Amino acid sequence: MSILFPPALRAGQRVAIVSPARKISAAELAPAIATLEGWGLTVVLGDSLAGDHHQFAGPDELRRADFQRQLDDPAIAAILCARGGYGTARIVDGLDFTGFRAAPKWVAGFSDITVLNAHLLALGFASIHGVMPVLFHQAGGELALETLRRALFGEAFQPIAAPPHALNRPGTATGALVGGNLSLLQTITGTASQASFAGRILFLEDLDEYLYHIDRMLLHLHRSGQLAGVAGLVVGHFSAMRDNAIPFGATVQEIIDRYARLHGFPVAYGFPVGHEADNRALTVGQSVTLTVDEAGGRLTA
């Protein structure tokens, strides 16, 4: 299936910020709005940014209607998801992408927004897995923000490197990028949002999970056949992992290695992608080459 890429942003265009998952405050967004305006963009604030329904940015109906409004508005050139949390999977089935198909636009975010990254790829469209407005100005996140800007404005992909790792599996593979948050990829298995990993470069990251959860989720991806056709695996941040009183007995990297070894693809650990400040933007659907050798791992386009 060919993958369609929305037009690159230009100064003077309008971009919307919405929150399809957890609620957010105006104060948390103010620095990001100033940054986007500094890029020459006009910022439109979605209704969900003022929403407040328990942990969510308003009820499902409000968040869905807000996202739909931005999808359908031809004056909006990109939709930036303000933050993650939980809730995107609750609204995605009610979204109508008819208008989007006629005039695609960039959708950007990560973590819970993996649902949208995968859903759009399943529909045949690229999107951006990258830092969200609530995290634009984390200390140490300067490259993350710059790579998001480059991706939105259609500038050339800059190679991303990871240092050598004892569990790396050498090799070279080329394919379209697919992936994101492991928990969400497992959650959408068997739904309309599931995007195929076959022949593609899969990237994974996660946050605040028990080690046995990581094993269980990877086992599910393996048993459901999703890992069988992977061309290469990029392992990003697995941050703040937890263990039980009785230890699981393996690190997160060792758990990933257990399942990677059941397949023949190259694997590289330690990429700057995920829930840490240095979260480089990846365009889901973009063709890249993964090279893994004694120098470490490299992604090039």
Rank of each mutant, 00 (worst) to 15 (best):
L145A: 09
F67Y: 12
L116E: 01
Q70S: 13
S127F: 01
L204H: 02
L184Y: 15
L135M: 13
R149F: 03
V252N: 10
E61V: 07
R63M: 04
L80C: 01
T88A: 06
A75D: 15
D243P: 10
G140W: 04
A26G: 12
S2Q: 08
A144N: 12
A151Y: 01
G296F: 13
D278P: 08
L41W: 08
M132Q: 15
A78I: 01
H54N: 11
P164L: 07
V131P: 00
G51N: 03
A118F: 01
G124Y: 11
L123D: 00
A151F: 04
T189W: 05
R14Y: 10
R242C: 10
V43T: 09
S239R: 09
F136N: 03
R69W: 01
E142G: 09
L182Y: 13
L204S: 04
A34T: 12
R216N: 11
P59K: 07
A126M: 05
L202K: 02
L152Q: 00
T35Q: 15
A162L: 07
L219S: 15
L152W: 13
L120R: 03
D257P: 00
A82S: 08
T291P: 06
L36V: 12
G232L: 11
S224G: 05
A162N: 13
A144V: 07
H237A: 15
G199T: 10
R261N: 07
D52F: 01
L49M: 03
E294W: 00
G141D: 12
T191G: 03
T174E: 10
T300L: 12
V252Y: 15
G171Q: 03
L299T: 10
F56A: 05
